[in-house]
Amino acid sequence: MTPDTSNIVLASASPRRRELLAGLGIDFQVVPSQIDEDRLEGESAEEFVRRLSRDKALDVANRSDIDGRWFIGSDTIVVCDQQILGKPTDHDDARRMLQMLSGRSHQVMSAYTIHDRETEEDIVRCEITEVWFRPLTGREIEGYIASGEPADKAGSYAIQGLGAFMVTAIHGSYTSVVGLPLSQIISDLIQLGAVALFADDTSA
């Protein structure tokens, strides 16, 4: 993949999103947003995650000291029983979430916004993936919490890490569960002219 190197800005501090984009050979800046991430009254889970992704992109795009054209904001939440499970506040909160997810399915919603600074246009999308957990024992939950992995993860788990032992199946985008639906966002970046896929491939 041949990128337009200096024009893409990832408005996120997430190392997982950074690794996903970098793994495709895309060069980009990382400039974390500084928005308030509180949920608005009456806002659905999908409305919430979509708004956060747009707010993050615009927050960085509106900074005059940041160069770039395409600004990517993203947010990921876990939803179970219509409850949004964010990052755990402590071990007890992580335990509560993992007990809730044990032996059943839940949804992971990853939204992203691509803001074009030149046209002032936005692409906003939300990918919803269903994830199934096997039943977890108390020892497994305590051991996983003790590993430290749940501490900064939505829903208190990382599918790409040790948390994979809990996941029996997914329906949807794996990378979306990690933090960014790569297939969809790359398609959008190609359509915008921000990246070119296999631009040097001259085969028929």
Rank of each mutant, 00 (worst) to 15 (best):
150 P>V: 10
112 Y>P: 10
87 K>H: 11
43 E>Y: 01
161 G>Y: 00
160 Q>E: 11
161 G>H: 09
143 G>T: 15
154 A>S: 12
15 P>G: 10
126 C>Q: 04
81 D>R: 10
106 H>C: 01
34 Q>T: 15
59 D>W: 02
140 E>N: 07
122 D>L: 09
120 E>Y: 06
48 F>Y: 03
39 R>C: 02
103 G>T: 06
36 D>S: 11
126 C>E: 04
8 I>R: 07
108 V>G: 03
64 S>N: 06
69 R>A: 10
182 L>H: 02
110 S>L: 02
107 Q>W: 04
20 L>Y: 08
118 E>G: 13
116 D>G: 04
24 L>N: 13
31 V>H: 02
121 E>A: 07
101 L>G: 07
199 A>S: 13
5 T>Y: 00
138 G>F: 12
157 Y>R: 05
64 S>Y: 05
92 D>I: 14
112 Y>T: 07
87 K>I: 00
23 G>T: 09
106 H>Y: 05
20 L>C: 13
161 G>R: 13
129 T>V: 05
54 R>I: 01
27 D>P: 05
114 I>K: 01
19 E>Q: 14
72 I>W: 01
194 A>N: 11
8 I>F: 00
144 Y>G: 15
164 A>V: 11
79 V>S: 05
45 A>T: 08
125 R>P: 15
28 F>V: 03
41 E>D: 04
168 T>N: 02
175 T>K: 02
115 H>V: 09
109 M>K: 08
64 S>I: 14
19 E>D: 10
204 A>G: 11
142 E>T: 14
9 V>E: 06
152 D>H: 09
147 S>P: 05
29 Q>K: 11
